[in-house]
Each structure stands twice: as C-alpha cells, then as structure tokens.
C-alpha cells in the first residue's frame, strides 16, 4: 500500500513540475530577479552604460541626508499610504457591508457603481477638467457661484492643494479587488452563527458586525490588506497625470515617481534601486504589522 502510494506520488511529480515551470521561470526572471538585483545595485553606482561600481552605503546616505526631494517623496508616499490606505480599506468594507442586505439587483448595480472607477481606468483624466484652474474648471465654478471663493483656485498646480486633489482621486479608485472580496465574503457567511448570536443577546447591527461578521471575514480582510498595501504604496502615475511631472515644488511627488525620475530620466540606477529597496522595506514592515494585527483579532 505504501509503495503504491509512493509510486502514485512519483507519477504526479513530473507533471506538477511541468505545471509550475512557466510561472516559476517568469516569476523568477521578471519579479524575483528585479527585487534581488535592486538590493545588489543599491550598493553601487550604475548608469547602464558603464559596469556598476561599488559604492557601499553612499546611496542610502545621500537619500536621507542629501536629497530633499526624496524626503518630500517619502513623506507624500507615507501620507498617501497612511491616509488613503486605511480610509480606502475601511470604506471598501463599510460599503460592502452596507450593500450586503439589499436585494440582489440593487446590490449588483451598486457594486458596478463602486467598482466602476477601477474599470474605467483612464477616466481619471476627467478629474483634470473638474479641478482645472481655468474657465472650464467645474469645481471652481460651483464654489464661485456658491460664493465660497472669489478667485479661481489652482487646485492642480498650487502646492497647498495638489496633494489633497491626488488623495481624493486615489480614494475614488480605492474600491478595487479588496472591495469585491468583501462583498463576496459577506454573501457567503454562515447564517446559523447569526441566529445563535441573536439568541445570545446581540442587539444591534454594530454588535453583530464586531462580534460575528468581522471574525468570520478574516481571510478576506487579509486579502484586502495585501491589495491595499500594494496599491497605496504604488501611488505615482495618478499624481503625475493630475498634477504634472514634476508637480509644482514636488508637492505631489511620490517614491514611485522619484524612482522613475532618478532611474529612467537621470539613469542613476544604483540610486534608484536604493530608493526602491527602502520602499520594499517599508511595505514589508507594514504588511507584517497588519498581518499580525488581523491574525490576533481573529484568534
């Protein structure tokens, strides 16, 4: 019996390797290698034309002591990640929870509305016209006619407002795959637990949410967290399309844009890699913290 089982295992091993091979090769070459080579290149000075030169910790020293733009970029990235991340995550969950009890048709319609910005992709360019500082700016005209402003606000180019505008648009885009996971997860929860809860003295929606729904949703919540971290630290292209590149006084500059700036424009690839490594480190730290927090809550 044992022998037969082992033979069966051996006969499945080869096909399993075949199944894994295409992904493992692609993943190794185009995802793992870039991450590892970033770490190695971050200790060098490299411009793509001459071979890399060992630079020790120079790039890291420069980043924190000699590059004011990087400091702006990391501050903005943290602001985006720490504001849009948790807010977007919470909104995704709250809305999934709120639409959960609607009839199927209404729920499907609202899902399309909330997920819509992610489908529309490039439509965020319409925000440029909404926030525009000239006569076509929709928001300015509304505020002007309401008597709230006397002169047009240059939302996109004024360093004071640029980051706020980008935050709004990021929030607009924040109900993505995580939101869909929450909607689906809530639909498939165990109803018996809720009836038992009602008998045990759960009195209102919020108690029900806290004591029954959230613990049941732990896997979806973790998935949503991964998706949120991945998108909220990658903010950059949205900012570039809205506020220009570079934005006025680098007001909406982010780490991703800084990597692009020093990497693909100035060809300082060693330095760009170092910036990327710092970003990886921050993302991993936050993921570890979120993972621990969510797991503890579930136990």
């Amino acid at each position: 019996m044992k022998k037969a089982k082992r033979r069966a295992l051996n006969s499945t091993r080869a096909p399993m390797l075949v199944f894994m091979a295409p992904f493992v090769i692609l993943f190794t070459v185009f995802t793992v290698t870039p991450i590892i080579s970033s770490v190695v290149l971050s200790f060098t000075s490299y411009n793509m034309f001459e071979p890399p030169e060992w630079a020790g910790f120079d790039n890291y020293v420069r980043m924190f002591f000699d590059d004011d733009v990087f400091l702006i970029a990391i501050r903005n990235t943290l602001v985006f990640a720490l504001i849009t991340g948790p807010v977007g995550y919470a909104l995704s969950f709250i809305f999934a929870w709120l639409i959960n009890e609607f009839p199927r048709g209404v729920r499907s319609f609202l899902t399309v509305i909330f997920y819509g910005p992610n489908l529309a992709g490039n439509v965020y360019f319409i925000w440029v016209y909404i926030f525009s500082g000239d006569s076509v700016g929709f928001l300015n005209s509304v505020l002007y006619r309401a008597g709230l402003i006397a002169a047009p606000v240059q939302w996109l180019t004024d360093p004071k407002t640029a980051i706020g505008v980008v935050t709004v648009v990021i929030l607009w885009l924040s109900m993505g795959a995580g939101f869909l996971a929450f909607v689906a997860g809530l639909q498939n929860k165990d109803h018996q637990v809720y009836e038992a809860g009602a008998i045990d003295g759960i009195r209102n929606r919020f108690q029900e949410l806290w004591y029954i729904t959230l613990p049941q949703m732990k896997p979806q919540l973790l998935f949503g967290a991964v998706m949120t971290i991945s998108t909220s630290f990658a903010v950059g292209y949205e900012a570039m399309n809205l506020t220009g590149f570079p934005s006025t006084d680098y007001a909406a500059h982010t780490v991703v844009l800084h990597i692009m700036d020093v990497g693909s424009i100035r060809f300082e690839l060693g330095y760009a890699s170092a910036v990327a490594v710092v970003l990886f480190a921050v993302m991993m730290a936050i993921w570890t913290a979120v993972n621990n927090a969510l797991r503890e809550k579930g136990e």
Binding site: F27, V29, P34, I35, I229, G236, V256, I259, L269, F280
Partner: peptide, 17 residues
C-alpha cells in the same frame, strides 16, 4: 508577498532585464 510588489515598484530593474 509578491502580490504587493506591483510593476510600478520593480519597473527599473525589470527594464534592465
């Protein structure tokens, strides 16, 4: 873990490869 590393973040070394 790799889900978190979006192409925006690994773009430069990916370009080199």
């Amino acid at each position: 873990l790799a889900i978190m590393f979006r192409p925006e973040v690994t773009r430069i070394p990916q370009y080199v490869i």
